[in-house]
Design a protein around this nucleic acid. Structure first.
Length: 558
RNA sequence: UGGGGUGUCGCCAAGUUGGUAAGGCACAAGGUUUUGAUCCUUGCAUUCGGGGGUUCGAGUCCCUCCACCCCAGCCA
């Protein structure tokens, strides 16, 4: 599961790097960076960027820095930094250096001074509204600010005083002097410093002016000697600005920005604003709610980090718009879990089955394999008693031969145990089945009856020798494939059935295992114990992903 | 004629210098199976957004048209 297996398949970025190495660019070195803004939790979209940056660096014997893009203290918090570090480490990546854009505030300021001295930046005193007006529109050129021709000396004085805290927020802004008529809006004298009298989580009260992204990012990359600066296609038309800035200063490096398309996963939203809103408005239980596409959520849900890495590799890297199906992610999760998850039985919607020819107080211990294909995973004891539970969905009063479960007056195999026959049922006043009575065939342990064919195999659990448990099963948080494309409030698209709780029973041995063990509850799916117990102190299991189910699928379509 | 992008199978996505369409997921059909799971086998684009052109030959070159996405934060 490591090494070459995880190498990135060929993509246009690896081609660029390969060509660069062959050409001897950067002396053949490769250095990338993952630059999140610490204003929320990392999600599956970030995972794609993380795997790409760290994966490509690894593939080409390079390194990757973690750099918090903390230029906007109003939105950011150290708590998010810590959560992000935990998530990246959990995903299995090790960064060469941990940096903050704020580490470079002093250097960034010096470069700005030089830009001003060179007549390439000026202090604008227009209000933000006026700046917007002067900027023009997509089809009409902008106009020069009346402050555009201030002398370098005046600009220098004003900028120093901005830093000194002499002006209120919004009074001035430092702008690059490029081209107000450019078809590229980013080149119409972009602002690079604004006044914010707020405390910064890293620099405290040292600054009251903060640099903006376009100015900060390229220089930070250059300072860190980043060779390939990967970002999403939303920044494509920022590249001329990225290059412009580095061309004007005495740049300590020559990073190349390369854009790739961000991930769009069906049935989920990955906008930071929306994820934050889901959390803030308690539409989900938190950033790590198992239904959230956050790394923390997927971890709690039981997704193995290797599965997420595999997914990021399989979706590939390109610049085209995409709309990845959930089935691919789930397939990766199943593939990672199938060989390693010990099997066990759990009944989530129990109905009692009384085996009338089984002794009242007998407890029969049966040895069952923990994995059907891996004997090294050993055996466990499962206890059979006169009263057991089976799933309501596994019994019918009558059914055709395609139904491979228990039917009244017919037989079915109890997994790892005997063949049982349903003889009668008891119902309540409303006609609901409250108990099934049946008999078992003592000749069928480990062998099939020679004269007849049993319908199939169902899972079960002893009524007295099992433990109560809560099971949380999940469906996509949103009920439509592309919640972002829908009109109206995306919150109205939340699937009310996205989380369903069941009270049932599980083999007691399961509770004796460490909480981190991921089980496959046979015929149901992969589950992992939640860090929290339910209000009654009962263990809760989260469904990581269900088993592939070709039966209900073909049934639903016919 | 604002600027920048993207269009290869239902969903992703490979396709060096033009040489006659990888792979994965999904799906379908068989086989194995005390999980309707797993596993195995097989099938699944005469066609690369459309139309022209160059060429012995084009997804790859040229022209043209069409569709969709991003940009007017003192957010990143």
């Amino acid at each position: 599961m490591t090494g070459n297996d995880e190498r990135y398949p060929a993509n246009f970025i690896s081609s660029i790097i390969e060509a660069d190495q062959q050409a001897g660019k950067h002396e053949g070195k490769v250095k990338t960076r993952f630059p999140p803004e610490p204003n929320g939790f990392l999600h599956i979209g970030h995972a794609k960027a993380i795997c790409l940056n760290f994966g490509l660096a690894r593939d080409f014997s390079g390194t990757t820095n973690l750099r918090f893009d903390d230029t906007n203290p109003i939105k950011e918090d150290v708590a998010f930094m810590n959560a992000m570090k935990e998530d990246i480490a959990w995903l299995g990546f090790v960064w060469a250096e941990e940096k903050n854009a704020s580490d470079y505030f002093e250097q960034l300021f010096d470069y700005a001074l030089q830009l001003i001295a060179d007549g390439k930046a000026y202090v604008d005193s227009l209000s933000s509204d006026e700046i917007r007006t002067y900027r023009g529109t997509l089809t009409e050129p902008g106009r020069n600010s009346p402050y555009r021709d201030r002398s370098p000396a005046e600009n220098l004085d004003l900028f120093q005083r901005m830093r000194a805290g002499e002006f209120p927020e919004g009074a001035h802004v430092l702008r690059l002097k490029i081209d107000m008529a450019s078809g590229n809006m980013n080149l119409r004298d972009p602002s690079i410093y604004r006044i914010r009298h707020v405390r910064h989580h890293q620099t405290g009260d040292a600054w009251c002016i903060y640099p903006l992204y376009d100015y900060t990012h390229c220089i930070s990359d250059a300072i860190e000697q980043i060779t390939h600066s990967l970002c999403d296609t939303g920044f494509e038309d920022h590249r001329p600005l990225y290059d412009w800035v580095l061309a004007q200063i005495d740049s300590p490096g020559e990073p190349q920005q390369i854009e790739f398309s961000r991930l769009n996963l069906q049935y989920t939203v990955t906008s930071k604003r929306k994820l934050k809103q889901l959390v803030d408005e308690s539409l989900v239980a938190g950033w790590d709610d198992p239904r959230m596409p956050t790394i923390a959520g997927m971890r709690r849900r039981g997704y193995p980090p290797a599965a997420i890495r595999d997914f990021c590799r399989r979706i590939g890297i390109s610049k085209s718009g995409n709309n990845v199906e959930l089935a691919l992610l789930e397939s990766c999760v199943r593939e990672a879990l199938e060989p390693s998850a010990p099997r066990a039985m759990a009944v989530m919607d129990p109905v009692k089955l009384v085996i009338t020819n089984f002794a009242e107080d007998e407890v029969m211990s049966l040895s069952v394999a923990n994995h059907p294909k891996d004997a090294d995973m050993g055996q466990r004891s499962v206890f059979l008693t006169r009263e057991i539970y089976i799933d309501r969905a596994d019994f019918k009063m009558e059914a055709n031969r395609k139904y491979k479960r228990l039917v009244l007056h017919d037989e079915v195999r109890l997994r790892g145990a005997y063949v049982v026959k349903a003889e009668s049922v008891s119902t309540d006043d409303a006609g609901n089945i409250v108990e099934i009575q049946g008999t078992y065939d003592p000749e069928t342990l480990g062998v099939n009856p020679p004269d007849r064919k049993v319908r199939g195999v169902i899972h079960w659990v002893s009524a007295s020798k099992s433990s109560p448990a809560e099971f949380r099963r999940f469906q996509p948080l949103f009920s439509v494939a592309n919640p972002d494309a829908e009109e109206g409030d995306y919150r109205s698209l939340i699937n009310p059935q996205s989380q369903q709780c069941f009270m049932g029973y599980v083999e007691t041995g399961v509770l004796e295992q460490e909480a981190s063990v991921q089980f496959q509850f046979e015929r149901e799916g992969y589950f992992v114990r939640d860090p929290e117990q339910n209000p009654d102190g009962i263990y809760r299991f989260n469904e990581t992903v269900g088993l592939r189910d070709s039966w209900s699928k073909s049934n639903a379509s016919s």
